[in-house]
Nucleic acid binder design. Structure first.
Length: 555
DNA sequence: GTAGGGTTAG
């Protein structure tokens, strides 16, 4: 068994990330120098003293030094133990060097250490950070007596890799094993609720958090702010934010992004200014949040100002999300040429999603030429991008190019591209009810139809005229059929009205953007039934109240 | 005597 071989490889394959950390940690490095001198002068050095110094190096970001020491300790006849391995595994987790991680895992198996909880949690974390979630699950299955941290690790692993249901399942198992959840458990779990948009689960976790006394922990509180904002309760998010004993960049950013998603954009901008004063230098995520706020409200000048502020004053290199927000605000304002120039001058290669922003706006502003250019770029990058085919065909139709429009439809048939059905869902008494367009399958379908007919009559008496020329967004194909069966969010809302008591807030989620006509209809409904109706679409939240929407009819 | 897990990214 070649301990030597294993160690040498570790050192050879170290990525350069440790160097960056070293420069950033000069002060700690000099502290480590004195540690090293002390260690050097020791008469007798055992595994514990080696492990201690290795740990100090890792903590100071001196990764290469730490790994070199692992090699050196084998040269003086000492064998790395489970302390050594769980100290260096986070290095591989951070740098994503899965081959080194696997070797370490192999060494642990051969020495019978892989079933220990300490080793298990480092291995689970390392594999998860290298996006090999199945390996994390495998390791967890072999840990003899998983402790709370091992459960935290597997929960974090699942959620960080997008397996939200798994994360919640592991949490239930953790409780069944009578292990007490910790603050970390909740800061791992809350993002799962945020992504799944399940307010009732999030509230249940909040209950656990209060009972456990974790609500003042900054990680937990920030995750709560984010969860409530993402699940549609911006007011509760703000209340928690205001009660936080201390705020860090993440808490500010979560709150700003919350306002960007929900609409009070001035609130987002003023929070950003306050954050600059209180917390100093915003990071790039904070700029993603404030630029998103600008794009959702169509604030062209402000977005451009923030973008140059970010690059010139703060020296932050823009990433895809920053470019997307600025491209969006320019495009939707009708500054198509400017948007095209902006995208063309990006320092990273624009993705299909960036070009799609321009293409979508070309449809609204009926610019066939730029639409063709954008579509060509998209088809190059993603030949099977369904939405772009549809938009291009719509641009052709809108500009009277019927032949070209028909050709696109033909190409789509030949490529076997079929549109994903649009759907909406509503949570009633902790049960989710989903509806697709033309959905007649719900047991209450007839009641829904009757209620819709009554509502429609009343809307028409109040002046509602169906709008069949939805030119704004890529919505369901059946948009011309203004009927109940056409759009899924109407079915969900009407079902919500007939199955909850008067005055109850309705929360509906939709997997694409809301169309203009539905937006109008929901405004009418909110006034007629005197309820707040909150619709989360692909991009943002709409709060309908007394005939108005929080998006200010711009979305 | 030493060690493992965390929040923001339309």
């Amino acid at each position: 068994m070649g301990g030597c071989h294993y160690d040498r490889k570790l050192l050879d394959e170290m990525p350069s990330r440790g160097l960056g950390a070293r420069n950033a940690n000069n002060m700690r490095a000099s502290t480590m120098d004195s540690v090293w001198r002390l260690f050097d002068g020791m008469v007798e050095r055992d595994v514990v003293s080696w492990n201690t110094v290795i740990g100090g190096n890792v903590e100071s970001g001196l990764y290469e030094e730490a790994l070199a020491m692992v090699r050196q300790m084998t040269h003086v006849g000492l064998r790395p133990d489970s302390f050594t391995l769980s100290t260096v595994l986070p290095i591989f987790a951070e740098s994503g060097s899965v081959s080194n991680g696997k070797e370490t895992h192999g060494y642990a198996i051969k020495n019978g250490m892989d079933r220990e909880a300490f080793m298990g949690s480092s291995l689970i974390d390392m594999y998860a950070k290298c996006t090999l979630l199945e390996y994390s699950y495998h390791v967890m299955g072999r840990v003899a007596n998983p402790d709370a941290i091992a459960w935290n690790s597997i929960i974090a692993a699942s959620v960080q890799n997008g397996q939200f249901d798994d994360g919640l399942r592991f949490f239930r198992q953790m409780l069944q094993w009578k292990l007490r959840p910790m603050a970390v458990t909740f800061s791992c779990l809350l993002p799962a609720c945020a992504h799944l948009n399940t307010l009732h689960l999030g509230k249940q976790l909040h209950g656990f958090i209060i009972r456990g006394g974790f609500d003042r922990n900054v990680f937990v509180a920030s995750a709560l702010v984010d969860m409530y904002a993402k699940c549609g309760s911006i007011c509760i998010a703000r209340r928690i934010f205001d009660q936080m004993p201390s705020l860090d960049m993440v808490s500010w950013t979560a709150m700003i992004m919350g306002y960007a998603l929900h609409g009070p954009v001035q609130e987002a901008l003023s929070l950003f200014r306050r954050m600059e004063m209180d917390n100093g230098k915003p990071n790039y995520v904070a700029f993603v949040a404030v630029l998103t706020a600008c794009s959702h409200a169509g604030l062209v000048d402000e977005a451009q100002k923030f973008f140059s502020n970010m690059t010139k004053d703060y020296g932050i290199t823009p990433c895809l999300e920053h470019y997307a927000a600025v491209a969006d605000v320019l495009s939707r304002a009708g500054k198509l040429e400017e948007a095209y120039d902006f995208i063309s001058k990006m320092h990273i290669k624009p993705t299909a999603s960036i070009w799609s922003i321009l293409l979508g706006a070309c449809r609204v502003h009926k610019n066939g030429e730029l639409a063709e250019i954008a579509a060509e770029k998209i088809f190059e990058l993603e030949p099977k991008n369904i939405g772009s085919h549809l938009i291009l065909s719509n641009v052709y139709s809108a500009t009277g190019k019927w032949k070209e429009a028909a050709e696109i439809r033909m190409v789509m048939r030949m490529k076997g591209l079929k549109k994903q059905p649009a759907c909406s869902w509503i949570e009633i008494k902790n049960k989710v009810h989903g509806f697709v367009a033309h959905d007649t399958s719900h047991p209450c379908y007839q009641k829904i139809v009757d209620a819709w007919e009554t509502l429609k009559d009343q809307m028409e008496r109040e002046g509602y005229v169906p709008n069949t020329t939805d030119a704004l967004h890529d919505v369901e194909e059946e948009q011309k059929v203004i009927s109940l069966s056409g759009h899924s969010e109407r079915i969900a809302i009407v079902y919500g009205i007939i199955s909850t008591s008067p005055g109850t807030t309705l929360r509906v989620t939709k997997n694409i953007r809301v169309c203009v006509d539905c937006h109008t209809v929901i405004k009418y409904i909110s006034r007629i039934v005197r309820r707040e109706i909150i619709v989360r679409d692909l991009n943002r939240f709409h709060h309908f109240n007394d005939g108005q929407c929080s998006c200010g009819d711009f979305w």
